[in-house]
Amino acid sequence: MKDGHYIKLTAVYFFAGLVMVYASYSLPKWLPGDFVTAMYYGSNVTLTAEQEAQIRACYPCQEGFSRYLLNLLSLKWGYSYAFLTPVSDLILEALPWTLLLFGGAHGASMLFGFIAGVEAAWRRGGWVEKAGVGCMTIMEGVPEMCTGVALLMLFALWLGWFPSSGAETAYSIYSAIERIWDMTHHLALPFTTLFLAYLPGNFLLTRGSMVMVLKEQFVQTARAKGLPPSRVRYAHAARNALLPMFTRFGLRIAFMVTGAVVVETIFSYPGMGTLLYKAIGLRDLSLIQGIVLISSLMVLFVNLAMEILYGIIDPRIRNAYKLPA
């Protein structure tokens, strides 16, 4: 690949990023109501139009897009009226939790699903494979909301083995190791929910593409070369079954924030999903804009990363960029 390609790629993504910034700036404004109506929505107080205007006047109105853009560049992400905290602080606080939960669940389900899928396809026709495919297909049909609620009720509320909410015990003073244990303890249920939600897809996808790859002639060649079976399975067959799985991973990671809303809400996990849920409820414009922006930039970034990684996973794709002169 030529350098020109990277320059072009960066330019395209920069432009797309600009569009994203504008969209994340303007779209949340279309939400009906604002934080003033939201503030008094649940209470018995009914404001007259005059009172509303007075309250609104206490807060400076949001400036135009160019101003917003300049602020973004100087890392001023605005101020949350609902939480009375800078938006950037809120996001920086929530983002690591989401990354931990989702990155972990995705990574684990991918690794496990991949290996299970490869081994299942290798033993095609055996009872292990048939049972695996059956179970996973049923699991694929169960939405994460159901799994989440079921796990919550069983292990947190009934058995009480795991905490039902939060990411760590509040106001506690722990040593580093104790803290990690505490976090893991909190993480267990939401992590398991997501792991179970993503595993079947990864398994079925890998098995499916692996079954196709195993029919390819180069697998036969690898066997003919007298290579150890694990080498044939992973270096030759699985290596070429990687792509669909990788695509799925990329897509899922890109929609991490929106995907997080349900599970994080069920387990009251202080991640981006919960934050977004609250922000929309409170019509906290700056915060919504910030989260939407982060999430859309993440989509872009993952896309860019995938585009580059595709070429490494499958060298044939690299040449697909070369247009005929």
Binding site: Q217, F218, Q220, A224, P315
Partner: peptide, 18 residues
């Protein structure tokens, strides 16, 4: 391969593309 090796038909498909 050490004693009996084979050149298969349809050559390009016999190489791992990766």
């Amino acid at each position: 391969w050490s004693k009996v090796a084979m050149v298969f038909q349809n050559q390009a498909a016999n190489f791992n593309p990766a």
